[in-house]
Design a binder for these strands. Structure first.
Length: 422
RNA sequence: GAGGCUGUAGCUCAAUGGUGGAGCGUCUGACUGUGGAUUAGAAGGGUGCGGGUUCGACCCCCGUCAGCCUCCCCA
């Protein structure tokens, strides 16, 4: 047992049960994304390292990307996020795409992190973006997508909320209380950490960074102002639209949401569980000139990303993990003897032609073994074509759920199965 | 990068420093054409890996790897 080579740290195996969940999640994402008219796309999993130099956080690329040297020379990265790839793909065809452009994707990413609850090194992420719109009212659509997704998977507005803020608004307010441009990044970080540190540590952290008490008092006051959004025309318009669309329950204003990422230039938002210590499920915002950063013309957009690990935990903890059946075939055709093996395979083939997924027991074995197998894999019916049935030109069909069995002509059996498995 | 807990049979776990057990699962038979139940039996580990202490180590010490949790970080 200790001989088995272990998985790479932070990766997961997807046995059929886990794969069924992943496919289910992908499908829920597809349903919601497509209901808003977004198109699915995918980029390469490998990118040149320099693609990320443009705008991703330094930390992300230098500390957390998997990087290796290509045989032809040059550094390659396993993609740690999708946005730079999206920016590149849009820039390449910038003149031929139809705007506003709506795109979504669900695929794997890699980050060299310390695996822990809700975080792995290889994970899947939903990315969805609306590109080519400058009007921030469009941001309401992405918020609606978030809300629609949560509703789709059964997470009510009591369980999860999308908190929204506006960076320009915060910038104005920060200037008002005496912060200067150079202090912006440290103040963002300070805001971001307010809930993560206890109050005295938070104040100490501020002091270390040269922010004195009276400005911290004003900042604290600012971060308590749940009505601050009224001072932003953009946010007011966004909330009005979200309410009109009927998703207001899921959306709220939070002056403390600021996000770490550099490229957000407008609205920022993140969804969290409402319980104390609730974790962030997804995050996103508006970016003003991402495409320009990779060599295209300026193009504004808004989007968000959601990882599969955290949403999976949240769904499981709320009893919302779907009951999935990883077994595609509900019918097992038994094999009676070596002479009748071909006969069984032919029978299974006839079922498939009629649209019934079927497994043929691939070798002669005791019938009780074959029934046990059918039971184990989650089949619902067993067909038996032994000497007795063949003489009559019939098959025996057993319904495993109620242990009833009847012998009938093959065509009748197929007809029965088609209607019962529908 | 740092700290804590853990690592024994396929799984979940037990074993005062004195040559490792149980439940579940698996396999076989009772059941020579019928599954989930019952019953009898069997197989299966030398304790993550590498050192050390000891007459003797699953147990103590050091290192290492992995998992979980937390800090850091968070696109």
């Amino acid at each position: 047992m200790s001989q088995i080579i272990q998985r790479v740290k932070g990766t997961r195996d997807f046995y059929p049960e886990e794969m069924a969940y992943r496919t289910w999640l992908h499908n829920q994402i597809r349903i919601v994304s497509e209901s808003f008219g977004y198109q699915e796309y995918e980029g390469p999993f490998l990118e040149k390292l320099e693609l990320y130099a443009a705008k991703s956080g330094e930390e992300l690329v230098k500390e957390q990307a998997y990087v290796f040297n290509d045989r032809g020379g040059g550094e390659i990265a396993l993609r740690p996020e999708l946005t730079p790839t999206l920016a590149r793909m849009v820039a390449q065809r910038q003149q031929e795409l139809a705007y506003p452009l709506r795109l979504w994707s669900f695929g794997p990413f890699w980050r060299y992190e310390q695996p822990q609850k809700g975080r792995s090194r290889e994970f899947f992420q939903w990315n969805i973006d609306l590109l080519g719109t400058k009007d921030t009212r469009c941001d309401a659509e992405l918020l609606a997508v978030c809300a629609a997704f949560f509703k789709q998977v059964g997470l009510s507005a009591e369980k999860v909320k999308v908190s929204v803020n506006d960076r320009p608004l915060m910038d104005r307010m920060l200037v008002n209380i005496g912060f200067v441009e150079d202090e912006k990044s440290i103040v963002y970080r300070l805001i971001d950490r307010r809930d993560k540190l206890n109050h005295s540590d938070w104040l100490a952290y501020a002091e270390e960074n040269g922010i004195e008490k009276d400005r911290m008092l004003k900042l604290t006051e600012l971060l308590e102002r749940d009505d601050l959004w009224r001072e932003s025309e953009e946010l007011s318009a966004i909330f009005e639209l979200v309410n009109a669309m009927g998703w207001g329950d899921y959306i709220r204003y939070d002056p403390q949401v600021i996000r770490g990422l550099l490229y957000y230039t407008g609205t920022v938002f993140e969804a969290r569980e409402t319980v104390a210590g609730g974790r962030a499920i997804l995050g996103g915002g508006r970016y003003g000139n991402l495409v320009a950063d990779v060599g295209g013309d300026p193009l504004s957009g808004v989007g968000f990303a959601m990882g599969d690990v955290m949403i999976g935990l949240v769904l499981a903890e709320n009893g919302l993990a779907p009951a999935l059946d990883p077994q595609p075939a509900k019918v097992v055709v038994s094999c009676f003897s070596p002479e009748l093996l071909a006969n069984s395979y032919v029978l299974a083939g006839k079922l498939r032609v009629s649209g019934i997924n079927a497994i043929c027991y691939p070798e002669p074995a005791k019938l009780n073994k074959q029934f046990k197998f059918a039971d184990r894999i989650g089949a619902s019916y067993v067909l038996i074509a032994g000497p007795d049935e063949i003489v009559e030109g019939k098959v025996a069909m057993k319904d495993l759920s109620n242990r009833t069995q009847e012998t009938l002509p093959l065509d009748d059996a197929i007809q029965q199965l088609v209607s019962r498995l529908a």
